[in-house]
């Protein structure tokens, strides 16, 4: 790429036309001024070079086509946007919470089985199953 303001030679003009085509509007902005000056100085050479480039442009333009109706695709994409913004159910977090709950229950049950019987429990059982008789009250 040449710096702005530098004079352009035929080789550079041809390289640009071969790469970017005959429409100088597509050429690098930094080269346009020098290219315009070259065209004024060497109109025949410039036109011959641009004519060659225009042939490829014309062939490429044969394939220009409208993308057609995109309304269905647009609807699908916007629906995917709604789904993406919806809070999602995180299965990993749910599994981790369930595992914690099961672990907690097991710890509680195991701890209860391992704990020594207490006197207080016996008192409760006694008071529950050995209810006072009428004679005791009487």
């Amino acid at each position: 790429m040449k710096a702005r303001g530098q004079k352009m030679d035929s080789a550079r003009f041809q390289s640009l036309a071969e790469a970017f085509g005959a429409d100088c509007g597509r050429w690098p902005a930094s080269d346009r001024e020098a290219a315009a000056a070259y065209t004024l100085e060497h109109p025949e050479q410039a036109n011959a070079i641009l004519l060659e480039a225009r042939k490829i442009d014309a062939a490429l333009d044969l394939t220009r086509a409208d993308v057609g109706d995109l309304s269905l695709l647009t609807a699908r994409i916007l629906s995917s946007a709604k789904k993406a913004n919806r809070p999602v159910f995180d299965y990993r977090a749910a599994l981790a919470m369930a595992a914690c709950a099961v672990f907690g229950v097991l710890i509680g049950y195991g701890g209860g089985m391992l704990a020594p019987p207490s006197d207080v429990d016996e008192f409760y059982f006694a008071s529950a199953f050995e209810a006072p008789t009428l004679e005791d009250e009487g």
């Binding site: 790429m1 390289s15 640009l16 071969e18 790469a19 085509g21 690098p28 042939k55 490829i56 062939a59």
Partner: peptide
Amino acid sequence: SVDALESLLARGRRSLKAALADVIEDLI
């Protein structure tokens, strides 16, 4: 880079020119 882009474009268009000689003749 912009230089690499220019090279890609030039090579591509050169290949098209060779491959589409008959189409280009027809268009002319």
